[in-house]
Amino acid sequence: MLNIRYEKTTNPKPLPEKDNPLKFGTIFTDHMFAMNYEEGKGWFDPRVVPYQKISLEPSAMVFHYGQEMFEGLKAYKTDDGRTLLFRPNKNIERANRTNRRICIPEIDEEDFLQAIKAVVKMDEAWIPTKPGTSLYIRPFIIATDEFLGVRPSSTYLFMIILSPVGAYYPEGLNPVKIWIEDEYVRAVRGGIGEAKTGGNYVASLAAQMKAHEEGYSQVLWLDGVERKYIEEVGAMNIFFKINGTVVTPKLNGSILPGVTRDSVINLCKHWGLSVEERRISVDELLEAAKDGSLEEVWGTGTAAVISPVGHLRFEDTVLQIKDGGIGEISQKLYDTVTGIQLGRIEDPFGWTVEVQ
């Protein structure tokens, strides 16, 4: 168990105005969690301190070799005033899987959860309560050795910052338009596609900019070898309902194993729907759209939760999914996941964890 020290801010910020819409990831709370690592000493000095700038040498290895990881999860305020986390242990498991892949020391899972709870409890007043809002939690680790050479760092800084947020996409729950990318590649099996590290996201920016210029919200990636199998969207995993069956790309080492993805698979099976995790080609997708068997498309992710897809574009072909509106399963999944997160409906899986 961590012996966390606390330093409360003497200059608290004003809380966001309740009637003003929250843009995603632009406002940060009063406090943050921090903890250091040294080889031979381990993780030490866990602390909750005022949100502040950090000082690093220009030679810090994170700037030169990208040895860093991050996670994302949320806290929610229930109608009766409790604070709930949604499946934090899955995010912690994934964080340590990323750590192993990029040679960052792992953090004990109980310590990790204690750190999240500590900083969330400190800034509990920042959790928004308007529909569609939540408190976004961003844990991350950076390499801090002052050294120009390619090797794992021997020192690290672990931090958790918090941000009250609204919808990730401006469209909210309205269907988004997705561009299927055929020029750039995000990741390949054996690389770091399944790790949550910044390199995967910077690799997506050129294609994302191209898609935005054409009026599309996000990029849907194809596999990096054969360039024909669907993988994931830039900020989400992807699902298709084809002839009554829910289909999502099988995890293959280049796809991020999303917590919301896993939740959706469990819910669909719980409801008796047929679910397949398998390879799905863009040709199969185009054919399903052409013959009318493509009934619904949606993305899943911590930030967006459930994001219905109304249009897909591949090369010069634009596909409208049914009537371009929100599908029945997308709506039911959104209502169920957010209902569990907010403590408003039964949680048959034991997914929520209370911050006390």
Score class of each variant (00 low, 15 high):
298 W>S: 06
74 K>E: 07
227 R>E: 01
141 I>N: 05
247 V>E: 00
115 A>L: 04
197 T>Q: 10
45 D>A: 15
178 I>T: 08
133 T>K: 09
312 L>E: 05
345 I>A: 00
218 Q>G: 07
177 K>V: 02
65 Y>E: 11
164 P>I: 11
111 D>G: 08
337 V>K: 11
297 V>C: 10
135 L>G: 03
123 D>M: 08
346 E>M: 00
174 N>M: 14
95 A>H: 13
108 D>P: 12
134 S>P: 07
271 W>P: 09
167 A>F: 03
206 A>S: 15
232 E>Q: 03
199 G>S: 12
75 A>I: 09
280 I>C: 13
279 R>Y: 14
140 F>I: 06
349 F>T: 14
195 A>W: 06
89 N>M: 15
75 A>Q: 11
48 V>A: 13
252 N>G: 10
167 A>M: 08
351 W>L: 07
280 I>T: 14
292 G>H: 02
58 P>Y: 09
79 D>S: 14
143 A>H: 04
50 P>C: 12
271 W>F: 03
24 F>Q: 10
253 G>I: 07
21 P>W: 05
154 S>V: 12
344 R>H: 08
195 A>M: 00
350 G>S: 03
236 M>C: 14
330 S>F: 01
210 K>R: 10
104 I>H: 05
110 E>G: 01
162 L>G: 13
35 M>H: 04
280 I>E: 06
245 T>S: 13
115 A>D: 01
290 K>P: 01
318 V>T: 15
205 L>I: 15
262 D>R: 11
145 D>A: 10
129 T>D: 09
174 N>L: 08
71 E>D: 14
246 V>H: 12
88 P>Y: 03
55 S>D: 02
118 A>C: 00
114 Q>F: 02
229 Y>G: 08
43 W>K: 05
184 Y>E: 03
219 V>K: 00
82 R>M: 09
256 L>I: 02
64 H>C: 08
144 T>H: 00
319 L>C: 15
294 L>A: 08
18 K>T: 13
120 V>S: 02
298 W>T: 04
122 M>G: 04
194 E>D: 15
308 P>E: 01
131 P>V: 13
340 I>H: 04
131 P>M: 09
14 P>I: 01
290 K>A: 12
231 E>L: 00
192 I>A: 12
148 L>D: 07
52 Q>F: 05
86 F>M: 02
82 R>E: 14
265 I>G: 09
300 T>Q: 13
64 H>M: 00
91 N>R: 07
328 E>Q: 10
43 W>D: 07
164 P>T: 07
290 K>V: 11
270 H>P: 10
15 L>C: 11
306 I>M: 02
165 V>Q: 10
253 G>M: 03
218 Q>R: 08
272 G>E: 14
158 F>G: 03
255 I>P: 04
